[in-house]
């Protein structure tokens, strides 16, 4: 009888598969009954991940929306190719892949649904456009499985944000299979990082970290008490705290609107200022 090769499920950070800097590894049983080792992310891993997201932000946000859409579609292609290797029912994999296809199409359209040209009563062209919020830490609902992971990923990426998904350890096998698809999708390193770990341990770190722009929690990923505490702590840094119901319905413009900042630009354009229409 052949001795099986045991796999260590690494985390995905900056386009690389890494172990936790803490060296913490937990044995767990895979879906096929074999024994695997799972990395448990430390607080420092989270800080490294968001730091990496921050330095990757300009690169990803600076891509054209067309390019972002192509890369998301490429993610769907990569998932499709690996569907049979994913440790879930094929129907669930298909649902998740179709979700990515759906969101890929948003990348170059969301800005048109959320931006406006504002008819100000003065000699200015005035427009409001949506800009990425920045670095997002997202806690997908484990019950949503792969669909939750892709929904959280797309919520972040469609608008040009970068972010880190925090996935509980018991979803690690799925998460790692998913990151392998991410890795081959042409997504630049650091656009999405995926850490496996304990939410109770990592949420408080995220709450008070001032270089995170938003925290997203989906469905039952955290308890109401944890959420209230997260809001309390996040208040210190005026954190955008966003809670979605779950992944069953795809994010639409109202959800994406929560993950972007509306920026209004006034451009001087002409000489006449109508009476009573202007500030000064």
């Amino acid at each position: 009888m052949r001795l099986a090769v045991q796999k260590t499920l690494k985390m995905y950070l900056g386009g690389k598969f890494i172990r936790s800097e803490s060296g913490r590894v937990l044995p767990t049983t895979a879906s096929d009954g074999t024994l695997m080792n799972v990395c448990r992310a430390s607080r420092k891993d989270l800080r490294d991940a968001v730091g990496n997201n921050r330095s990757s932000l300009g690169g990803w946000a600076g891509r054209t929306a067309y390019n972002r859409g192509q890369i998301l579609y490429r993610l769907a292609e990569m998932l499709e190719g690996r569907a049979s290797a994913l440790p879930i029912e094929p129907a669930l994999a298909e649902q998740a892949i179709d979700r990515v296809v759906h969101h890929a199409g948003w990348a170059d359209k969301i800005s048109a649904t959320l931006s406006t040209l504002n008819p100000v009563a003065s000699a200015y062209v005035n427009y409001s456009m949506v800009r990425p919020m920045g670095v997002v830490v997202s806690f997908p609902d484990p019950r949503d499985g792969l669909l939750g992971l892709v929904e959280a990923t797309c919520q972040i990426l469609v608008m040009g944000n970068t972010g880190t998904l925090i996935v509980p350890l018991d979803l690690a096998e799925l998460a790692v299979a998913y990151t392998e698809a991410l890795h081959t999708s042409d997504l630049p390193g650091g656009a999405i990082n995926v850490l496996t770990g304990d939410i109770v341990e990592l949420l408080p770190v995220a709450n008070i970290h001032d270089d995170i722009d938003a925290i997203v929690v989906s469905g039952g990923a955290v308890s109401d008490e944890q959420w209230a505490e997260a809001q309390r702590e996040g208040a210190q840094v005026l954190r955008r705290m966003i809670r979605f119901a779950g992944a069953s319905v795809p994010s639409g413009p109202d959800a994406f609107a929560k993950l972007c900042e509306v920026k209004t630009v006034w451009m001087s354009a002409g000489a006449e200022i109508p009476a009573g229409g202007s500030a000064y």
């Binding site: 504002n118 100000v120 840094v237 005026l238 900042e261 920026k263 209004t264 006034w266």
Partner: peptide, 26 residues
């Protein structure tokens, strides 16, 4: 920033969204 005035400053209009990012609020 939430608002940028290009060749102007402190202009306001009800049709024009106003508000900040980061510690300037949301």
């Amino acid at each position: 920033a939430g608002v940028v005035w290009a060749n102007g400053y402190n202009l306001f209009d009800p049709s024009s969204p106003f508000g900040g990012v980061r510690h300037s609020g949301f």
